[in-house]
Amino acid sequence: MIAQELNLWIESVLLIEYPFKRASLEYLGGEYSEIIVSTPNGIVPIGKNHPTVVVAGPCSVENKTMIVETAKQIKASGAKFLRGGAYKPRTSPYAFQGYGESALELLSIAKQETGLGIITEVMDAGDLDKIKEVADIIQIGARNMQNFSLLRKVGSQDKPILLKRGIAATINEWLMAAEYILAAGNPNVILCERGIRTFDTKYTRNTLDLSVIPVLRSLTHLPIMVDPSHGTGKADYVPAMATAAVAAGTDSLMIEVHPNPAKALSDGIQSLTPVKFNNLMHKIFVIDQTIHKLA
């Protein structure tokens, strides 16, 4: 009798073998999700069946002139989003931590002057409301990938979330972190590979795991981003890894760009100049067009 009554209300039962239920590719019946972001310049879709979306900008917001001019230059090269840290998680407590709320104001000015979408990181749930006023996509950094209370908090609001892979996280751990956000009610999660820690740190900052792109394609419907700047830690290696990521099928890229990397307050060594970024964008466009024509 009870079973008969339940049949009136249950349309179907979906058995998903993975622990990450909502993040699983099976959850959408094998279809890939897309995230639609509304920016002042218009709608930007991010997902498997769309052109590669490029996010660019400095590690940290330093001053108005720098962030506005950088935004104008990356927009002219084809970037859709400006990245810039207002709050910076640093290994050393004595390193530059970002300018906080004043940096958010500068990001807002850059957004108004260029129409670019904004991506910036939240480190503390107490800062979420003021970050939401400026950011179009909210970043959870590698160090906070398993900050479960913060994941629940960002999952309870509707701004898209960029979830960076932890520096020593397995793919399962990464997808389970995404599950926290999805389970809290926010379906708009982008997974960002930014390099993992391995035994060799002499020549690169991290080991960029490009094999994760096809692996994620087989496991999850969520869009994929690759950050070759943090993944290699050296500007000279960024173009090769960025183009390789596009060839491997990433949905989006995050690339650090600074007008004068030698004087950057943080991560200048891995930042491209605007000229080098523009050259890279031409290569990305050619590969992206080729990949989508062959698909």
Rank of each mutant, 00 (worst) to 15 (best):
I2S: 13
E5V: 15
I10E: 02
S12P: 00
V13D: 03
V13Y: 06
Y18D: 14
K21H: 12
A23G: 15
A23T: 03
S24V: 01
L28K: 11
E31L: 13
Y32H: 15
S33Q: 13
E34D: 15
P40T: 12
P40C: 13
N41W: 08
N41L: 15
G42K: 10
N49H: 14
P51S: 15
T52C: 14
A56G: 06
G57H: 10
P58L: 10
C59F: 07
C59Y: 07
V61M: 04
E62L: 06
N63Q: 02
N63W: 06
T65P: 00
E69N: 13
T70L: 01
K72A: 07
Q73E: 12
Q73F: 00
I74N: 00
I74P: 06
S77P: 08
K80H: 14
L82C: 04
R83N: 09
G84Q: 12
T91C: 05
Y99M: 11
S102P: 00
L104E: 09
L116M: 01
G117K: 01
I118C: 02
T120Q: 03
V122L: 03
G126W: 06
G126P: 02
D129R: 10
V134R: 01
I138E: 09
I140A: 05
I140D: 01
G141W: 09
R143Y: 06
N147Q: 01
S149H: 05
L151H: 03
K153C: 07
V154W: 09
D158Q: 13
K159C: 08
L162P: 05
K164V: 07
K164Y: 10
R165T: 03
G166T: 09
G166I: 07
I171D: 03
M176T: 06
A177Q: 04
A178L: 07
A183G: 00
A184C: 03
G185Q: 03
L191I: 14
L191E: 04
C192D: 08
C192W: 02
E193D: 09
E193Q: 06
E193S: 01
R197M: 04
Y203T: 10
R205Q: 03
L210R: 00
S211M: 13
I213T: 03
T220D: 08
T220V: 05
H221R: 04
M225P: 12
V226I: 15
G231V: 09
T232P: 10
K234P: 00
A235K: 12
D236E: 15
V238A: 03
P239F: 07
A240R: 04
A240P: 00
A244N: 02
A247Y: 10
L253T: 11
M254N: 04
V257E: 07
V257W: 07
A262E: 15
K263D: 15
A264F: 12
A264I: 09
S266P: 08
D267W: 11
D267I: 08
G268S: 12
I269A: 15
Q270H: 12
V275F: 14
V275T: 13
F277L: 07
L280C: 08
K283A: 15
I287A: 14
Q289K: 14
A295D: 12
